[in-house]
Simulated scan of single mutants.
Amino acid sequence: MGTGVPPSGGEKESLHASLDRHRDVIVWKLQGLGEEQVRRPMTPSGTSLLGIVKHLAAVEYGWFCSTFGREAEPLWFAPEDDFAIGERETTEQIVAFYGRARVAADKAISDLPLDEPGTSWAGRRVTLRWVLIHMIEDTVRHAGHMDILRELIDGATGDHPR
């Protein structure tokens, strides 16, 4: 688990540390659960713990790579199916996909200045700073969803390991 946001770090370092801290929580929420538990749809819309991880991997590639014209791993699923877990998809496969997305995103964060302009999938002009803030918000939002789903599965709660 990351050490958190440095109390006197620079803007980019602080934003990146915040994102990393919550990315670690996403993976931590799967620990100790079996394949059926992480795949189990827990809401009427079909949301599962593993589906959230798959979604976050896809959007990390989209926002940090595609937005800035960087290479992204080709998706084997339609973008609108990013929360769905196929019969042959495993926890190991999805967690590894998320890990590769994080590495690609981290490279973009490292290589580009905060004011670097990019174009989103919807054609909107954004900066790396905006993307970092957006991905922190999205990751934290989904970590909260995962906290609730995990509590429903086995009663475990918490936003970070103690």
Rank of each mutant, 00 (worst) to 15 (best):
G32T: 04
I52R: 00
S66L: 15
G34M: 06
P79Y: 11
K29T: 09
G4P: 06
E71R: 13
V53K: 08
R39H: 03
E36N: 15
W28D: 03
F83I: 08
L50D: 00
S66D: 15
A78N: 12
K29C: 07
G10C: 06
Q31W: 09
T43I: 08
E71L: 12
F68L: 02
I52G: 00
A57S: 08
M42N: 01
E73R: 11
K29W: 09
F83R: 14
A78F: 11
T90W: 04
I94A: 02
E87W: 02
W63R: 10
T90S: 13
Q31L: 09
L50H: 00
D82R: 15
Q37M: 07
V25F: 10
E89S: 11
F77D: 03
T67L: 02
A58Y: 08
E89A: 06
V95L: 07
P7S: 06
P74A: 12
L19F: 08
D81P: 11
W28M: 05
L56K: 07
G9H: 10
W63M: 11
L49I: 01
D24C: 10
W63F: 13
F68A: 00
M1D: 11
G69K: 01
H55E: 06
V27N: 03
G9S: 13
P41F: 07
F97Q: 08
R39P: 09
S8R: 14
K54Q: 00
Q93N: 01
P7E: 12
S14D: 11
F97M: 12
T43P: 09
L49V: 04
Q31M: 05
A84S: 13
E80L: 10
F77A: 00
V95I: 11
T47K: 08
R21E: 14
H22W: 15
G4A: 07
S45Q: 12
A17G: 09
P44I: 05
F64P: 02
K54T: 02
I85P: 00
V38M: 01
I26T: 14
F77I: 12
Q93E: 15
V53H: 02
W63P: 05
Q93C: 06
I26R: 04
A57D: 06
W28I: 01
E80Y: 13
G46E: 02
E35Q: 04
E89D: 05
V27C: 02
G10L: 08
E89H: 08
E92P: 06
T43G: 04
E87N: 08
H16I: 02
V95D: 03
P7A: 09
T91R: 15
E35D: 11
K12H: 01
S45K: 14
V38Y: 10
L30D: 03
L15M: 13
P74Y: 04
T67V: 10
S48I: 07
V95S: 06
K12F: 09
P44E: 07
I26S: 05
Y61I: 00
K29F: 03
E11P: 00
T91V: 10
E11V: 13
G46M: 09
W28K: 01
S14C: 09
E80I: 12
F97V: 05
L19C: 11
G86V: 10
G4F: 04
V27R: 12
P7D: 07
A96N: 08
G69L: 09
W76A: 14
H55G: 06
D24K: 10
C65G: 10
H55K: 04
E11I: 03
F68W: 03
G4E: 03
G4V: 05
C65W: 05
F68Y: 07
